[in-house]
Design a binder for these strands. Sequence first.
DNA 1: GCATAAACGAGACGGTACGTCGTGTCTTATA
DNA 2: TATAAGACACGACGTACCGTCTCGTTTATGC
Lengths: 201, 201, 201, 201
Amino acid sequence: MVTEHLGAARTPGRPRSEKAEKAIIDAAIDMIAEGTGVAELSIEAIAARAGVGKTTIYRRWSNKEDLVVDALATLKAPMPELEGKSVREDVIRYLAGMQQETHHRRTRCIMNIALSESERFPHLAERFREIAVKPRRDALRAVVQRGVDSGELRADVDVEVAMAALTGAMIFFTKWRENDDELPADLPERIADQILAGLLP
Amino acid sequence: MVTEHLGAARTPGRPRSEKAEKAIIDAAIDMIAEGTGVAELSIEAIAARAGVGKTTIYRRWSNKEDLVVDALATLKAPMPELEGKSVREDVIRYLAGMQQETHHRRTRCIMNIALSESERFPHLAERFREIAVKPRRDALRAVVQRGVDSGELRADVDVEVAMAALTGAMIFFTKWRENDDELPADLPERIADQILAGLLP
Amino acid sequence: MVTEHLGAARTPGRPRSEKAEKAIIDAAIDMIAEGTGVAELSIEAIAARAGVGKTTIYRRWSNKEDLVVDALATLKAPMPELEGKSVREDVIRYLAGMQQETHHRRTRCIMNIALSESERFPHLAERFREIAVKPRRDALRAVVQRGVDSGELRADVDVEVAMAALTGAMIFFTKWRENDDELPADLPERIADQILAGLLP
Amino acid sequence: MVTEHLGAARTPGRPRSEKAEKAIIDAAIDMIAEGTGVAELSIEAIAARAGVGKTTIYRRWSNKEDLVVDALATLKAPMPELEGKSVREDVIRYLAGMQQETHHRRTRCIMNIALSESERFPHLAERFREIAVKPRRDALRAVVQRGVDSGELRADVDVEVAMAALTGAMIFFTKWRENDDELPADLPERIADQILAGLLP
DNA sequence: GCATAAACGAGACGGTACGTCGTGTCTTATA
DNA sequence: TATAAGACACGACGTACCGTCTCGTTTATGC
């Protein structure tokens, strides 16, 4: 890469079509967003939808998984702004962001895929963590750490455990709630306040 | 069943073989435990492994999901005893139970299946919640409620949120930890203490 | 076969569908008769035309060639009656039969296939010889031999060479004539008479 | 072409490479000689074998058949000398030539291709007739005609039928003999004598 | 000598057919 | 009536070539 301007090697033959690549990824994302599971995704269908020969897909990705990984990578995960005045405010905003994401069809599907296929498609899961989970985690960690540093939170707070409790609680409600009722609107506040305050009298 | 000895109506023809049924379910469980995802589970393979015709499977279950549901039902989820002297002790024991389950290959696979396929196989998820999640949830709820009633915990504790925080934190570590290092042995204590104490000074 | 009534082995499972088999062979024959060469014959197309899964074809024949062999076998080649009063009359009738066969679309196609694909599909050629060529050859040999025996032909006639000359001459006109003009109607007589009479003065 | 010496327009750009052309034809011939049927001949393989791009082939020939036609044209068919003293001698020499050709691997393959693919590749067949069949046919016709003119043969001999009988008989033995035994060495004599003498007493 | 322009190798492109596998249904003989 | 065995129509798999289409490079001339 560094030496490219010095006459770096150029592969001979016709270069791969970026248009085709985009069409393939778009088709895959659309189908996933429409509810097709990764396992149900057929290369044949993606090719047909993208108006592309199957070979053009196999030339780029040897697995369905690799394709989906690349597809996921194109999805920019919008991040909530967490520059609030207090830890409580930021945490609530963060949790509210999580809660809201379950409403957007596209985000929800992608997230579900990422979460639910992780066991079977480890590459996929890892990549998802990298592009979607990690930035959020880092943002939340910064919020908590800032609280510890400023004295807003206790000095002996275990940052990782605190993050796990906050995030885990919301995920728990989102994914394993017992009925399909809408989540209460004040859930972020309730989670934040309770974890901040603790359970002890 | 109960009235059978009274000469009640008996369906004519050859009765279904319990042996076959057991063989099918065993085969399915084994394959899942060996890492085969529900989607990858092929009826053909189950039949071959169980030494059974495919018809014999389809006669009993109309689809793969129903089969897996029944297979799951045969797995008795051992519950930790939560009759400890304090809320803290019980919570730690509960979390430790969760953590340990991730070590047993079989339990882990089953749990992963149940968790990860929930989106695509809703019946399966529901059934799993019923036989595996609910009893635990109830047990934990009882522990927390007991704490509230006894004054060991604050009176205004939101029991559901507390449960979500405790369970969610552990799941978070179990499923979304950043590296594959062994979980620290004192994780249950750390989670319990932090959530009990809260984050505020 | 002979001992079948004594309790011969019966393969378990659903027996192969004769209807499907017939549909496949019919489809193949039709496509060949319509001018599709053996090499151009696609299993996919045969299956579609026969309303049959590809597997059903592959289950029966491992090669396209084997399929065509069996297809050919179902074609009964009608034989001319050769019970005439003289060798000359029988020979002319025989040659006229050959000439006529080139007019019937179906017969012609089959024959062409058989002849033209023989190099690449040896099984096919062998089978064709067996069911189509040999009976005719035998019939002609009988005619010539009868002539020798009866004194109608010379005693020192080389029967095989005589047959080759007669049949070969007609094939030569049929397949390698220089233009596509219709063959003259009196060709059988001309060939027969000339070969019977010889070239010497 | 005609005006070239007048300084006519010369096509600009790089001229076609004769080397490439030769390499392509050689590759094609080799593959045919090795037993590959025309239908099995893949342009891809020819290009690879010739070390040439596929475009270079398609630029010269619009289809496989045209390529093979040109390939065949490069094969000079050696003709037997037929300047013998008698018709009998020349005919025997001619037939012996046919018989021998079936021994040379290369000749045999080419001939087989030409014969067997004629139905499906009409251009090919026509060209083959032109470069390989017609000269021989003409030579044989001259021999027979010479016999008729000189009185060595009967005046009323049908030259075309005589040629068909002679050539056809040999082809018949060559291509449709019942077993794979070696052809008898005296076959040319036997055919010639029998056809010259006729079958009648 | 240097621009022009076609031919060149390489290889990607949209397709079609390949032969295999798994689906869920069906059809046998046997229990 | 249930069973095992296995055939059935269907549809997706991943591969091989098809004939076409870019690429960057090479190789002849004509200015």
